[in-house]
Amino acid sequence: MSRRLVLITGASSGIGLAFARAYASHGWDVALTARRADRLEKLAEEIRLRFGVEAHALPADLAEANAPEDLQKSLLALGRNVDGLVNNAGYGQPGGFVANSLEQHKAFMQVMMMAPMELTHRFLPGMIEQKFGRIINVASLAGFLPASPGDTLYGPIKTFLTRFSQSLHLEVRDHGVHVSALCPGWTYSEFHDVVGTRSKLSKAIPEWWWMGADEVAREGYVAAEANRPCCVPGAPNKAVAALLNIVPGDWTMELASGQLRKIHR
């Protein structure tokens, strides 16, 4: 098989779905994973017909500790190596730290942090061996904030993904492997619908600040090909990221708190 294969997590909607189409449009075969098997099968069929590449639907729940190993076994059974990895799966967990159970927090960290780390560890050696690889970890502009109340673990985990990507970028850049953190801001997807914040956010966040998932994925693809360690898509988000690098942390904490009060009032 001459075509490259990319594994995309959280591929059934939003940025993950957009990445699937973006990679397929550039001639990559795609392996799609998410919990919703029906959506994956539908997307895989669309990609086969539209782009003429192979598309594999591999339903999995990354909250289960054995999911990364099972995905690796499934791909080995297909006789395919993983040339690209997009760690995109994720969700929000609002309501505050105490209001969510310890088991909810553990599952959240498994999906958002442990699974991306393990998938990277499982597939990176093959990329290094063949001297080619692409890894995109979908982080967030929220990872640039020193703190954000409410969705307590989200920002710190996204900070981890960004720093993890940057460190790994330095570690493997001489091996033909590109590693990038993609840090989008407000993005039109199902993310905010699932956590029930869509209507409030639409009122609080100006329309010009929002980006489409397709645009975010395109910028992420270009950044990975250019081997940029971090990509913040969209001019407003770039400006915010630059500002957060120079504004004192206690100021940004208060700004974040004020913005959240505006959203949730």
Rank of each mutant, 00 (worst) to 15 (best):
S199H: 14
S199E: 14
K200L: 07
K200W: 06
K200V: 11
L201I: 13
L201T: 08
L201E: 09
S202V: 13
S202M: 10
S202Y: 13
S202H: 07
K203Q: 14
A204L: 13
A204K: 12
A204C: 05
A204P: 07
P206G: 11
E207Q: 14
E207N: 02
E207T: 15
E207K: 13
W208E: 15
W208P: 12
W208L: 13
W209Y: 09
W209D: 09
W209Q: 13
W209E: 14
W210L: 05
W210T: 04
W210D: 04
W210V: 05
W210F: 06
W210N: 01
M211V: 07
M211S: 06
G212P: 09
G212L: 12
G212H: 15
A213H: 05
A213I: 08
D214V: 06
D214E: 15
E215Y: 08
E215L: 01
E215P: 06
E215I: 12
E215H: 05
E215A: 12
V216F: 01
V216W: 00
V216C: 00
V216D: 01
A217E: 00
A217M: 07
R218V: 14
R218L: 14
R218T: 15
E219M: 03
E219T: 00
G220S: 08
G220L: 09
G220I: 06
Y221R: 06
Y221N: 05
Y221I: 12
V222N: 04
V222A: 12
V222L: 11
V222E: 08
A223W: 02
A223R: 03
A223M: 02
A223E: 01
A223N: 01
A223C: 11
A223F: 02
A224T: 10
E225G: 05
E225A: 14
A226P: 02
A226Y: 09
A226V: 12
N227Q: 06
N227C: 09
N227T: 00
N227L: 01
N227S: 08
R228A: 00
R228N: 06
P229D: 00
C230R: 10
C231I: 04
C231L: 00
C231A: 11
V232I: 14
V232E: 00
V232M: 03
P233L: 02
P233W: 03
P233G: 03
G234W: 02
G234S: 02
G234A: 03
G234N: 08
A235R: 10
A235Q: 02
P236A: 07
P236C: 08
N237D: 00
N237F: 01
N237Q: 05
N237P: 01
K238F: 03
A239P: 14
V240Q: 10
V240D: 00
V240P: 01
V240M: 14
V240W: 11
A241D: 10
A241W: 06
A241M: 11
A241R: 00
A242E: 10
A242V: 11
A242F: 15
A242K: 15
L243R: 07
L243S: 12
L243T: 12
L244R: 06
L244W: 10
L244N: 03
L244Q: 10
